[in-house]
Design a binder for these strands. Structure first.
Lengths: 139, 139
DNA sequence: TACAACAATGCAACTTTGTTGCAAAATATT
DNA sequence: AATATTTTGCAACAAAGTTGCATTGTTGTA
């Protein structure tokens, strides 16, 4: 575990620090996407709020995590797949946000369909975000 | 113009006030989506910040405007089509956010494709948000 | 392993963004 | 026109995000 974490950091030419190891392992442990607030709750005793902001920003820039747009002003972050590199994200899968429990999933099984845009529009990134009820909250 | 605005408000059983008329006409004039900040800039001398928050909230609840998720913690709002009613939005078109100028477009020509989700996941709303360069910023 | 160079962190202060309660003003109803 | 209802502005607050700088931690090199 620890080895995997440090390997990822080293691969992206980041120095190995406590904050980065902790935050990165949080993503591995939960599996799902996390908002800044989630991370703050789970590590506020260990790190300053500012460090979390800066760490998330660094991870996005380096292609370790990607953002998931939301309609409630609380951007979520999730681990990228290996193909993502600094400045070039390739996360063309669907994201699902549960209205009940708030959990955000990366639905890897489904890929985002290509969309034809009107003339002059050039797509760089496509986000397909679905909200509803997840398989745990359904009865 | 004024007549059209008041008709929309009345149709949704909202009392006709200066703030609502002004904010609603802003959406009609610009044509594109607006963030809270945009509206505040264009009408801060006329109305209090709080009024804008509450007006946008009311408009969303009544089905006059809908939200567009973003990755930068600045939810955008855009006019709904006629089919939207209180509590039931039907805005299954694609949204495009320009990385250059920040303009957010509703691409009505393209509709959001249906997506099959894994078992247990029930979709209520689907948002397809594409970012890149718009037809005005392209050269 | 010790040292210098560099990068990351914590702290403080601050700005921006969003929320709530309540009195005053505006709108609707009769 | 008078009253009931709704909306607004204000104030005070809470939460979220940013910036500069001194301190601490990490890395590469001798």
């Amino acid at each position: 575990m620890e080895a995997k974490i440090t390997a990822i950091l080293r691969k992206h030419q980041l120095s190995i620090t406590e904050a980065r190891k902790k935050i990165l392992s949080l993503f591995w442990e939960t599996g799902n996407a996390l908002a800044h607030g989630d991370i703050e709750q789970k590590s506020s005793e260990d790190f300053d709020r500012v460090t979390i902001y800066r760490t998330l920003q660094t991870f996005v820039e380096k292609g370790i995590i990607h953002t998931i747009p939301t309609s409630d002003n609380s951007v979520r972050y999730a681990l990228c797949k290996d193909e993502c590199a600094a400045g070039h994200h390739h996360d063309d899968h669907v994201h699902f946000i549960c209205d009940d429990c708030g959990t955000t999933y990366c639905i890897d099984e489904v890929s985002v369909p290509k969309v034809k845009l009107p003339k002059g529009f050039r797509a760089v990134q496509t986000d397909l975000v679905i909200s509803g009820t997840c398989n745990k909250c359904e009865q």
